[in-house]
Amino acid sequence: MKRSRIIMIIGALLPLGLFIFPLWNITLEAPQYPIPLGMNIYINDFADANPHDIKNINIMNHYVGMKYIPDAIPEFKIFPAGILISSFIGLIIGFKLNFKWFLGWFILMITLSLAGMYDFYLWEHDYGHNLDPKAIMKFTNADGTVMGFQPPLFGTRDILNFKAHSYPRFGALFLALGMGLSFLSYFIGKKESRQRVAT
């Protein structure tokens, strides 16, 4: 089998790592939490970084009127299906189709990932801004608007007494690596086809 196909097939398989490793992590640090509170986001679950962290994040957040982090969201069904289907498509492409399709799969994955990120952003925004009007503590920004508590999409941000970190985890690495390999396989495939023409 040609090198480009092998790389494409590996690339198509790597996103399956998302079923084992978390995609993202949000960690909240504060002085009275010497072991920070953390939540690992899997494609099908929100999980405690340490036992009971989500429960304790909820208890903290209810003071400012944030909703409880739900046990399940529709995305937990959509994302795994999306990953399975796109890996399957990637495999078909890797085995059967011409290298130009490799680029096609790469573009598909970029699009899906961006859509996923946007969806995550929307949820985060709602989580951080759609506050209970009967919140125990209400905070306003300097300009008088109601303060939101949206964690950053990527990076670190101070939210009241907490420092919130939001960074990709192993699962995201698998996804990125898979996409990178498909992109690479496109160029290798292109080179291989040119070589064949030349000979």
């Binding site: 072991i35 036992p51 009971h52 429960k55 304790n56 208890i59």
Partner: peptide
Amino acid sequence: FHVTNLEQDY
């Protein structure tokens, strides 16, 4: 009064 502490935080 049978009181249960539901906290699961240190």
